[in-house]
Simulated scan of single mutants.
Amino acid sequence: MSLKETLLQPKFTEIYVEEGIRTQADSILSHFPNAHIIMIQDYRDVFDRPRQSYSLQHKSQKLILARKKDGFLYPGSPVCQSFGNPYFMYSSCVMNCVYDCSYCFLKGMYPGGNLAVFVNLEDYFDAVEKELQKHSLYLCVSYDADLLSLESILGYGRAWSEFVRKHDNLTIEIRTKGTFDTSWQKMTVSDRTILAFTLSPETVIAKEEKGTPSLSARLAMLQKAMDLGFPVRICFDPVLMCPDQKQAYQDLVEKIATAIDLQKVRDFSLGSFRLSKVYMARMRRQYPDSAVLQYPYVCEKGFYHLPARIETEMTDSIVEALAEHGIGKEKIFFWRES
């Protein structure tokens, strides 16, 4: 088989499994009966090896199953929103995403495009329980992956939602662009398990969010989540520069309002594109033709972002569109460079 043929095989035709976790990995492996299983000592030998190409690897992702040994919780990043919660952290039980959005910070964060899954969720839960002994916690569990797009394989959404039910001082957010499937119905409904849906204009989805569901599919998914009783958050984040910018996002709000009852949405998140200086440098090298990445952003405090005036105009137009449907600013959370 040639190098090109090897690189362009379907996803997960090869699965790397750390020694000592085969039993824990069996339920995941059962979904891939024809995959070639390769035993390894440490996931980092594959995931972190040098001179990888994220763009090429993502076309034929390999799955890596491993045990997380430390670093189960991280403080919330300054480019992420806390939604008014004093104790905000995130957790990464999966690293990398099955989708291929041009602007995704994971392309700059990780050395390659393969997907790593940690099978020892109980250790994550232990770390959270220790934190909860000190204070309440707002935890984002799917910043470094789209967990719900993998729910039928992993069941991690169900596991996290069941864990939340047992802890009154824990609230989690699970963010997704994925499509609904029956595995979601196994999740435990709670007002402290927030399902957050990233929505973009159709032109942005087509050009910048490769492999993701259409806007109509996402809206159908969002409605089903509300029907199940989950509190839902709509995320216009990141808001991207695009042709007819203001009109595109106002049209987006109108399509959302036509498909669902905006008054039943828990809250809304708005934030323009922002990215760390280090990640941007890596991504610009790998994607020299990306209009999103090559735009002349402002770099301040170690982060690239749009000039404040443009950023404000972009988000204000969405606020105005939401206001026409009775959504006040008290339900809208912003990320803006201050």
Rank of each mutant, 00 (worst) to 15 (best):
F105L: 08
G108F: 01
E320T: 11
P288Q: 11
F180Y: 14
P296D: 03
T198I: 06
P231N: 05
G326C: 09
T188M: 12
R218M: 06
A308T: 13
A66H: 14
A25R: 02
F47V: 00
V265M: 06
Q250I: 02
G20H: 03
F236I: 01
Y304T: 05
M314Q: 08
C97I: 02
K134N: 14
S272V: 15
V278K: 12
V117S: 14
M314Y: 09
I234Q: 03
R51P: 04
V204S: 07
I172N: 05
L73P: 03
Y90L: 07
G71E: 08
R192M: 12
D45Y: 04
M283D: 06
L252V: 05
M1A: 06
A281D: 14
K210P: 09
L219V: 06
V253Y: 05
M226Q: 15
D191L: 10
T203C: 14
V141A: 09
K177Q: 04
K277G: 13
A25H: 06
L170T: 13
H167Y: 11
G155A: 13
H325E: 13
D48V: 07
Y103V: 10
P307G: 07
Y156Q: 10
S200Y: 08
L219T: 12
Q185C: 11
E202H: 02
A257M: 07
L29N: 06
I194K: 05
Y43Q: 10
K210M: 13
R51H: 14
N85P: 03
K107L: 02
K301A: 08
Q185P: 05
L121E: 15
K62L: 05
L65T: 04
K130S: 13
C104W: 02
V232A: 01
H325Y: 14
P78R: 13
Y16R: 04
L137G: 09
T315K: 11
F333E: 00
F163C: 03
S82H: 13
A257P: 13
C97P: 04
P213M: 02
C97Q: 05
I38C: 05
E162V: 00
E320C: 12
R158Y: 12
I15W: 02
I234D: 02
D146Y: 01
M39Y: 06
A159T: 03
E129Y: 02
P296L: 10
P78L: 10
P296M: 07
Y287V: 00
V232I: 15
Q250L: 00
D144M: 13
P78I: 04
Y279R: 15
D261F: 08
F230W: 04
L252K: 00
L121S: 15
H305L: 06
L262W: 05
L219D: 00
M283S: 00
G76L: 12
F118A: 15
L132K: 03
Y103C: 10
F180S: 09
M314R: 01
P78Q: 04
S290M: 10
S149F: 02
D70R: 15
L137P: 04
T258E: 15
K329C: 07
S149V: 00
